[in-house]
Design a protein around this nucleic acid. Structure first.
Length: 749
DNA sequence: ACCCTCGCATTTTTT
DNA sequence: ATGCGAGGGT
């Protein structure tokens, strides 16, 4: 357990306090107010790009430097590990001190810390396992099977979502509201939730939701404990308050209720996680929840130029439910965002690639450029084009390191070695690599374990001793058990990295992937090596396992500047010189699912997503909408998103690609969809001036670039088509010579 | 026990 | 179009 003794960071004699406050230099008046208003509830409404993190970290530094609080009297919570790490390092820079005694971390890590300290009070052992989504699902599947529930009709995934949503809102199995308790499997939802919780307890495990809900319960049910933490955390800071769910809100309110020194920083306009339990109402309600709260608006934007900011502000002004801010910038008007209507997804990708090329030529680093999409399927087309033209890019948000199968397998071995009763880990590895222990054997083990209240490991030994298994299975199982036991005994004998190296070798995992001899397997082996390497940074396996349960980041090696491709969601908090926003079409953005599920509320969240997208740009934003797009293998025609028509005409430049004008000459697309006529959720009206190519045909129109045609390429200039092969053209350029290019890269000249 | 084929869904993602 | 999961065949 970490030391929590008070450590005075830098006591300041009264006379030098002013001089000691150099770290306040350069803050604007609102930022300064947000830093210096230390007592009582404060809500800092921090719009995009207003220096939010600076305020947060300076506030912590101020508390410490003025001697208002000891480090261990401060509780600072964030949502992501990245944000927590950033806060920690910036506070360290400001205070010049490294002091681990402040509780700075994610809601989940702080929940975990509390639970481990007082595990026995909630019926856990301090070494409980934190299940991830995968384990959770496996457990739920077992329960559904046991209860004879048809998994086709009632998928485990749906139950997981339901349970999550209950946990997010603070309901334990005894408090699920009646109407909802019948929500799943003809009324079994609530009891399945109960069974699941009981299983978790028996496994000495919690899921992510429990880290919050159980730590709330811990505090609620133990008044003296609560009181001690209330007394201890004299100053509470919360980042991204608009993303909190109900349990997090209750938890914060409970801890802050004694001294009320709670400072929440957030932006209602950037609340985009409603679908995973975040409740915008928390931030909208702040003044009611914390009477006498001071609201401070940070409205001076240091990121974007004028037109970009104006476009974003006008767009978000269409939302009804907001606290309202007026962002302004002192930098110039800059470039207007450009909205371009294109013919189809391929042209869109082509336009983006071309624009990036010219931006690169004019000196913008690729690292300063991002393509932000609504849904990840949009990435493929863009990636394909980038590959074709040799544009370096990276995709953010693929499967993360610790979620890869090979890593999860290795991790499961480690968990088994560490905690012999980790049944879920045991289930994962029992037949990986294949060793002839199939479903039949496993079922027998489960049954035996259940009947005698044993873990699978113990049950296996027991059943083998009683000759309850076939000889072949018995033999294979025994080998595994002996391996696990042997490793278990060696955990603390070896350095963590050597230990892991041994386990991946001796378990046969490395051999398994070596045998595959595919490029993919190579990568997996590489990942295993990376795993071993990363173990070098930990002093014990236990420490590593806790880290992995809660931390996800693994920065890939950087090899030169690259364009970033990611979803709008993962772009929150980031900024780029130039931002591309493709796919602003009805039927894609706003996403019909969101509209179906939550109607107006969903629409407003989608609009906030659009707002987040535009405000990522420092100097240039390019928005695209395509008339035709292939979705799930089907061609769909669509009109510009209603968000396009909500952009201010004075601050945005609307254009049409030549191809688009050629094939759909009638209405200007920037009119988009009027909110009223778009009321029917999800329905994409046929394009204005629909032509024979737009209504459900699976074939793309010819683009008039047959052999001999004169064409123009943005980079290579004018040329003559020499040959054409399924969209790939061989062109003799007047100045650049013969090149292979994609047809969408050239315009008919 | 393992492999293969068919059917189905397919927004967003952190911890 | 495509990938993942379940169920049936070997």
């Amino acid at each position: 357990m970490s030391t929590d003794r008070p450590v005075r960071t830098s006591p300041q004699p009264a006379s030098t306090v002013r001089e000691g406050e150099w770290y306040l230099d350069g803050l604007n008046p609102q930022q300064l107010e947000a830093v210096e208003t230390l007592d009582g509830p404060v809500l800092v409404l921090a719009g995009a790009g207003v220096g939010k993190t600076r305020v947060l970290t300076t506030r912590v530094a101020h508390l410490l430097k003025t001697g208002r609080a000891w480090a261990n009297e401060i509780l600072a919570v964030t949502f992501t590990n990245k944000a927590a790490a950033e806060m920690l390092s910036r506070v360290e820079t400001l205070t010049g001190a490294r002091d681990g005694s402040a509780w700075m971390g994610t809601f989940h890590s702080i929940g975990s810390k509390l639970l481990r300290r007082h595990a026995e009070l909630v019926g856990l052992k301090p070494n409980f396992t934190i299940l991830d989504t995968d384990d959770q699902l496996r457990l739920l599947k077992q329960i559904l099977k046991d209860e004879n529930i048809d998994e086709k009709r009632w998928p485990a995934r749906a139950l997981a979502t339901q349970i999550d949503s209950w946990k997010n809102r603070g309901f334990d199995p005894t408090h699920v509201p009646k109407p909802e308790s019948i929500a799943f499997a003809s009324g079994k939802g609530n009891s399945l939730y109960g069974l699941y919780q009981a299983r978790l307890k028996r496994l000495n495990a919690v899921d992510f939701g429990d880290l919050l809900l159980e730590s709330l319960r811990l505090l609620r049910d133990n008044p003296s404990l609560l009181e001690s933490y209330q007394r201890r955390f004299r100053y509470i800071l919360v980042d991204e308050y608009q993303d909190t769910n109900h349990v997090q809100y209750l938890w914060l309110r409970l801890l802050a209720s004694a001294h009320k020194n709670i400072c929440c920083v957030g932006d209602d306009d950037q609340s985009i996680y409603g679908w995973r339990g975040a409740d915008v109402e928390n931030i909208l309600r702040f003044e009611k929840d914390f009477p006498g709260a001071k609201i401070i608006r940070l409205e001076c934007n240091y990121r974007s130029t004028g037109h970009i900011l104006a476009a974003a502000s006008q767009l978000i002004a269409h939302n009804r439910k907001r606290l309202g801010k007026t962002l302004f910038t002192k930098s110039g008007a800059g470039e207007k965002p450009i909205v371009t209507g294109v013919w189809d997804g391929a042209e869109e990708a082509g336009e983006i690639a071309t624009r990036i090329e010219s931006a690169r030529i004019s000196g913008v680093s690729l690292a300063d450029i991002a393509v932000l999409v609504r849904a990840s399927f949009q990435m493929r087309e863009i990636e394909e084009r980038f590959l074709e033209v040799g544009l370096p890019y990276r995709v953010i948000g693929g499967p993360r390191f610790y979620e890869r199968a090979e890593i999860r397998d290795a991790m499961a071995y480690l968990r088994c070695a560490h905690q012999p009763d980790d049944d879920l880990a045991f289930e994962r590895i029992h037949n990986v690599p294949k060793r002839g222990i199939g479903e039949t054997t496993l079922a027998a083990l489960r049954q035996h374990a259940r009947a005698h209240g044993l873990s699978l490991r113990t049950a296996s030994r027991d059943l083998i001793a009683r000759n309850g298994l076939k000889a072949k299975a018995s033999h294979a199982l025994l080998t595994l058990l002996n391996d696990l036991d042997r490793w278990g005994a060696e955990i603390d004998q070896k350095a963590p990295d050597q230990f892991v190296q041994m386990v991946v070798d001796e378990s046969g995992l490395v051999a398994m992937w070596k045998a595959e001899k595919t490029e993919e397997a190579e990568g997996r082996l590489e990942n295993l090596k990376e795993l071993v390497r990363s173990l070098g940074e930990f002093s014990s396996l236990a420490e590593f396992l806790e880290h992995v349960s809660l931390v996800v980041d693994t920065a890939g090696a950087d090899s030169g500047p690259r364009v970033t491709i990611m979803t709008l969601h993962s772009a929150k908090g980031l900024e780029f010189e130039t931002v591309f926003l493709p796919g602003w079409e009805e039927g894609l953005f706003p996403h019909p699912r969101s509209l179906e599920e939550t109607g107006q509320k969903g629409l407003e969240e989608e609009r906030r997503l659009a707002y987040v997208g535009i405000t990522r740009a420092r100097r240039q934003a390019f928005i695209y909408h395509a008339a035709n797009r292939r979705v799930h293998g089907q061609w769909q025609s669509s009109v510009a998103s209603r968000f396009v028509s909500e952009l201010p005409r004075d601050n945005v430049d609307f254009r049409e690609s030549e191809t688009r004008e050629q094939w759909m000459p009638s209405a200007p697309s920037y009119l988009g969809v009027r909110p009223r006529e778009a009321g029917a959720a999800g329905a994409s009206p046929a394009p204005r001036g629909a032509n024979s190519f737009t209504s459900g045909t699976a074939r793309k129109p010819p683009r008039g670039m047959a052999t001999g045609a004169r064409v123009f390429h943005l980079k290579f200039g004018p040329g003559t088509v020499f040959a054409e092969d399924g969209g790939k053209l061989t062109v003799d350029f007047d100045h650049a010579g013969r090149k292979m290019v994609m047809d969408s890269f050239v315009e008919p000249a």
